[in-house]
Amino acid sequence: MAKYMILIYGDAAQWDAMTEEQWQAHNAGHAAFAAKAGTRVLDGRQLENTPTATSLRADVHGQVHTTDGPFLETKEGIGGYYLLEASDLDEVLELAQLLPELNYTHSGLEIRPVVERG
């Protein structure tokens, strides 16, 4: 078995503009995903939108600067994640099809294998 992180990307403005019914459908999608994935989901959370983010970055002198906002200023930011356990990439790809972010063109998913050591 291996671990994978599913990073959920999307445009926060579009998420904010969703109606109550749209959110219900959206949450039902996540529930369907969770039901199908079962114990394979090790963790999964929605994150507050990127305006709430705080970034830290060191300059060439080793001085750490704290800034308001996400690490990369892009229209689409990370809105949530799942940490999954699966036997291979195809298993994750199949489960990920259920996530409601794929019903919109502004959002999408990035799947990253987690480094295993030892």
Partner: peptide, 14 residues
Amino acid sequence: AAARIPYRVPGPDQ
């Protein structure tokens, strides 16, 4: 290797 793309013939649905 790292993303574990399986060495397998895909199932009938795919």
